[in-house]
Amino acid sequence: MTGSKDDREFELTVNGKRLTVSGAPVGASLLSVLRDNLGLTGTKGACEEGECGSCSVMLDGNLVCACLVMASTVTEASIATIEGLAPSGTLSRVQEAFVDHGAVQCGFCTPGLIMAVSDLIDRQPNADRETIREELAGNLCRCTGYGRIIAAVESLLNEGDL
């Protein structure tokens, strides 16, 4: 919930596309702009204070909470969301691993977790289990108890070892 309407338009680069945002409230978060102005509802919101990770996106290559980014301040940045992870109708290997290992229940935390796991395996393809825990500690899941999520992540890391 942010201040009055700002008539000024601005542009964002999301998943490689330059998009125009108009009519967003003053000071609106990237989360609300993605969802309410750009129709990219794959990024979820569950706390709006950076404590759940549901809104994780990549901002210039860094995993961040979109709820803590003021959208109008990142007009020059490269933003990647869940929608851009794999071509329409296909799944990335992280997404496939989540499907195959039962890491999805209600699925609300899933897009944020998939962004976090994708970032993790890019940066640390040989992460051990404790590193996985440290790197994913910002993404709350209320359904799974994380067991199948860890199984999915470890399957990806093991793949790398082969």
Partner: peptide
């Protein structure tokens, strides 16, 4: 058996519509 969830592909790709979407 443990087939995968029918809604899982939509959920992992952000295409599944929750009430708030």
């Amino acid at each position: 058996t443990s087939p995968t969830r029918p809604d899982a592909p939509a959920k992992v790709s952000g295409q599944f519509d929750f009430a708030s979407d």
